[in-house]
């Protein structure tokens, strides 16, 4: 009894200190890659001009009667995320049924679906966007396709979890009425999953609108494009007004989408 009591803390203590040493080593290695030293020289003047710019946003940029302005950029961003969410919300349905364990008899079917979805998920949307820009040219359409394809990974996973959690009873009832497979799907499965699907799609929309603001940085449309131009010429007052617009747009869509989600469930 005494032996084990004396023994355990020592091995535990060794493991504890070992992991501390490993963590410290990792941090030492990580921090020295950051090159903090090269930063200080110009910081002060840059900071002052930035603060000055942010305090005096370029209000004239908000609306320009004919030309690229903030409102049009934000509208493009909103539209890219609406369409992107729309495309993925529909495209992901077959994937979701494919990946649900209770929709196919063989586990290999749903297993392969799940693997495919996680592969889609690890591809960052910005890379998907670059690939689509090469295919359909720069612009909002490439952004829509990028969001549409990338979101399938997450949405289909959430959808399939919903499908896996449905009550089997109504399916049995429909079968007993003489319904065929499609009819069972339409009348027993779909009504149970649709509200959850809608809610997840709205949630994904909230994520997509954030992504849509960045798609323009690589040329896939939306507010990111004027932002990167303003950043390149260090036009801080314009950067300020664009950031303000982005914050307002995202806050508003978050609030609206959150309200809708509460009503659906």
């Amino acid at each position: 009894m005494r032996d084990t009591r004396a023994y355990k803390p020592i091995s535990r203590r060794i493991r504890f200190w070992l992991s501390i040493i490993v963590i410290l080593a990792i941090y030492y290695w990580a921090f020295q890659g950051m090159h903090f030293e090269g930063v200080q020289s110009t910081t002060k003047t840059v900071m002052l001009s930035i603060i000055n710019g942010f305090l005096h946003p370029d209000w004239s940029y908000v609306y320009i009667p004919d030309g690229e302005d903030l409102l049009r950029g934000l509208l493009d961003t909103l539209i890219i995320s609406i369409l992107g969410t729309f495309v993925s919300a529909i495209l992901c349905i077959p994937f979701a049924f494919w990946a649900s364990t209770n929709m196919s008899r063989r586990l290999t079917v749903s297993g392969s679906g799940k693997i495919l979805l996680s592969v889609i998920r690890v591809f960052p949307e910005i890379i998907v966007a670059i690939l689509f820009i090469k295919a359909v040219g720069p612009g909002a359409f490439a952004g829509v396709l990028a969001l549409g394809i990338h979101s399938i990974g997450m949405l289909a996973k959430l959808y399939s979890e919903t499908i896996e959690s449905i009550d089997r009873g109504p399916q049995e009832a429909l079968l007993a009425c003489g319904a065929n497979r499609l009819q069972v799907l339409r009348y027993a499965v779909i009504p149970q999953v649709i509200p959850q699907f809608l809610s997840y799609s709205l949630y994904r929309f909230e994520i997509n609108i954030r992504s849509a603001t960045t798609l323009g940085l690589v040329g896939a449309g939306g507010i990111g494009t004027p932002l990167i131009f303003a950043l390149q010429v260090r036009n801080w007052s314009r950067v300020g007004v664009i950031l303000l617009g982005v914050v307002i747009l995202i806050t508003l869509t978050d609030i609206i989408s959150g309200k809708l989600r509460k009503r659906i469930i």
């Binding site: 954030r210 940085l217 990111g224 990167i228 950067v239 978050d254």
Partner: peptide, 12 residues
Amino acid sequence: TIPDLLFASIFV
């Protein structure tokens, strides 16, 4: 509300 890439492009 600000996505990571926006932060990054500003800090760059």
